[in-house]
Design a protein around this nucleic acid. Structure first.
Lengths: 340, 340
DNA sequence: ATGAAAGCGCTAACAA
DNA sequence: TTGTTAGCGCTTTCAT
C-alpha cells in the first residue's frame, strides 16, 4: 500500500497485448494510425488499469512540458488573483496545467522564481506585475528569460516595458489622464495622490497620468503620499492624510483600487467620510470596488481577460501582432459625486 | 536561436571536467561528499552555463516531483486566494513549486483535475473547498486519491469530511453556533440566513450552527435564502431579501463573508442600511470584511495559516496527529451594533 | 499499420 | 571521494 508503483504505459500495452508504441499512439500520440480493434483494446486496458500518463516522462521525451509558469506579485491580491483566474481558464482550455509562483514584488525573488520555473521546461512563462524603475536585476532577468526563449519557450509580460518580450500592456498613463480630466470636470480641484513605492512603474505612470489630466482640467496636485502597493499601504496613506487634515483637498486618487479601499477605511476611521468630505477614485476595478461604501470610481481594467490574453499570446505560435495596450471605461460611481 | 537545447547536467560536468555523478551530487544531491575544489569548479561551470536542473528529469529519476498540487474552487475568491497564499509560502520554504488548478466547485471537474495533477507525480495533492453532500462522484475521487496515495503521494483536504484522508478541518458548526449565541446576546431575535447551494456542506454546517446557537439564545430563524456561494450569489440573495421586505428580521447571517459582502451591497442599493436597519454577520474574516461599511462582524478563520498547515501536514512524513479543527475568534464589528 | 529500440536528463546503486 | 552505468516512462524514428 505504501509504494505500489503507478500503472505505466508498458503495463497497458502488456494488458492489451500490443506494443508500447501502439499504446502510446492510441493514448497520447497525435494522428490516428491505429486499427480500431487495437485502439479499443488499448483504451479498455487503460481504463481497466486506471492509467494516467506520467507528465514528467512525457515532458522529457518531448523536451517540453504542458505547463504554463505564472509569476505574480501576491496571489492574495485581487488584482493578481483575477489575472490568474483568467490565465488558468485559458490554460485549461488548451489542456495545460498552471504552476503559480509569487514574487512578493521583490526583484531578487522574482529572478530566483523564474529559475525554478524554467526547470519545469514549461511551454511559456507569464510574468504579471509592475516592473521597477530601479531595476538592477533586470539584466539578469532578461538573460534568464532569453535563455528560456532560446530553448523554445515563450515569454509574456503583463506590465509596461516587458524588457523586450511579448507584453500585454495596460494603458496606465492614458487612462489615468482621462480619469484625471474627468474628475476635474466633475468639479474637483485639489487632489492628494496615494501612490505605491517610487520605483513601481505602474504606480508612477498612474500618478503622473492622473496629475496631467487633472491639471489640464484645471486641478492642482496638493500632495502625494506613498505606501506599500497594497491594502495596508493604502490604509497607512489614508491615516497619514487624515492626520494632516483633509481640508486642503477635495479628492483622493489612489494608484490602485486596493490602495483606495485601504485609504477609504482609514479616512472613515479618522472621521472623514469618503464621497461626502472628499471624493476618492482608484484604478483597476477589482471586485471589491463595487462593494465598498460609497462604491468606488475607477478605471475598469478587464483583469481576467488580460490573464487570458497573456496565455493565448504565449500559445500563439505565429508571433502575432503586438496587441494594443489594454484600457477600459471610466466608471464614475458614488465615491466621486458631482462637486458643486 | 529558435531551439538551442537547454544546458544539461552533462554539459556542466564536461565544462567542469568531472563526472556526471559528481556534478549531480554538487548541484542537486543531498549530503556533501564532494571535495571542495570539485565543488567549486562545478558551481562555477553551472553558473557560467546558466544551468537549471530539468525538474521533469529529476522527477522521473526520483519517481516523484518536488511539486505540490493544489486544488481550489475559485482562485479569484479571497477565501481561496488567502489559503493559496499560505500554501505557497509553506511550499516555497520547502523548496517546492505549486501547481494550482481550479474546480469551479464542480465535482466532475474536480475529478478530472485530480487526474491531471496526478500525472505530475507531485509529492502531495491538497484539496481545498467544501465537500458536497450529494457526492455521487466521491467514490471515484476516493479511488483516484487512494491510487495516488498507494504510490507514495500525500493527500490533504481542507474541508470537513476529507473522505478518510488527512484533513485540516474548519470548525464550522461550533464557531457558527457561538456566533449565533453571541448575536442573540446582542439583542437580535429574528434572523434571515443567506446560504449557498444545499449540497455545500460548509454552507449547511454554518447555517445549522448559527441557527442552533441563535435559537439557544432566544432568537428565531425567520427564513433562509440561497444563492451561489460567492459574491454574486450573496448579492442576489440580498436582493431577494430586500424585495420581500426586511421588517420581519433584525439580522442577516451569511454563510461566508463574500456572500455577506454581496448581500450588503444589494441591501444598501435597495435602501436598507446594513448595521442600522438590519445587522449583518458573516464567516471567514476575509480581508474585505474590514473595508466594507459598516465593518463586518464575522468569525476570524486564519485562512493563510490553514493553507500553510495543509502543506506542512502533507510534508510531514510521520503521519502526525490529526490536528484539532481550526476555529478563530468572533469579531464583533459595527455591522452588528448592540440591539436595544 | 505495427513493433523494436534509441534516447530525453537525471538519480542512485555499485565499482573502483 | 569519484566515476560508471542501469534505469525512470514516454515519444519517435526506423524497420518491418
Amino acid at each position: 500500500m505504501e509504494s505500489a508503483s503507478p500503472v505505466t504505459l508498458n503495463d497497458v500495452a502488456d494488458e492489451a497485448g500490443v506494443s508500447l508504441a501502439t499504446a502510446s499512439r492510441v493514448l497520447n500520440g497525435s494522428t490516428r494510425k491505429v486499427a480500431d480493434s487495437y485502439r479499443e483494446r488499448v483504451m479498455a486496458a487503460a481504463q481497466r488499469l486506471g492509467y494516467a500518463p506520467n507528465i514528467s516522462a512525457q515532458a522529457m521525451a518531448r523536451g517540453r512540458a504542458n505547463i504554463i509558469g505564472l509569476l505574480v506579485g501576491d496571489i492574495a491580491d485581487p488584482y493578481f488573483s483575477a489575472i490568474t483566474s483568467g490565465a488558468m481558464a485559458a490554460a485549461e482550455e488548451a489542456g495545460l496545467v498552471v504552476t503559480v509562483a509569487v514574487t512578493g514584488r521583490d526583484a531578487e525573488r522574482e529572478l530566483r522564481t523564474v529559475r525554478a520555473l524554467r526547470g519545469q521546461r514549461p511551454r511559456a512563462i507569464v510574468l504579471a506585475g509592475s516592473r521597477f524603475s530601479d531595476a538592477t536585476l533586470d539584466d539578469e532577468l532578461t538573460a534568464e528569460l532569453d535563455g528560456f526563449r532560446s530553448t523554445g519557450g515563450q515569454v509574456v509580460f503583463i506590465s509596461q516595458s516587458g524588457l523586450g518580450f511579448d507584453t500585454v500592456r495596460i494603458e496606465n498613463t492614458g487612462a489615468s489622464r482621462d480619469l484625471g480630466e474627468r474628475m476635474a470636470s466633475l468639479g474637483y480641484r485639489r487632489v492628494a495622490i496615494v501612490a505605491g513605492p517610487e520605483p513601481l512603474i505602474t504606480s508612477t505612470e498612474r500618478a503622473a497620468g492622473f496629475a496631467e489630466g487633472f491639471a489640464r482640467g484645471g486641478g492642482e496636485i496638493v500632495r502625494t503620499v506613498r505606501g506599500d502597493f497594497n491594502r495596508d499601504g493604502g490604509f497607512a496613506a489614508g491615516e497619514q492624510l487624515a492626520a494632516s487634515g483633509v481640508s486642503d483637498i477635495d479628492i483622493v486618487f489612489a494608484a490602485s483600487d486596493i490602495m483606495a479601499v485601504g485609504a477609504m477605511s482609514a479616512l472613515r476611521q479618522a472621521g472623514v467620510t469618503p464621497g461626502a468630505d472628499v471624493g476618492i477614485a482608484g484604478f483597476d476595478d477589482i471586485s471589491t470596488a463595487r462593494d465598498v461604501t460609497p462604491p468606488l470610481t475607477t478605471v475598469a481594467i478587464p483583469l481576467e481577460s488580460i490573464g487570458r490574453s497573456a496565455v493565448e499570446q504565449a500559445l500563439r505560435t505565429d508571433g502575432g501582432e503586438a496587441p494594443a495596450p489594454v484600457s477600459g471605461p471610466i466608471l464614475v460611481r458614488e465615491s466621486t459625486p458631482l462637486r458643486t
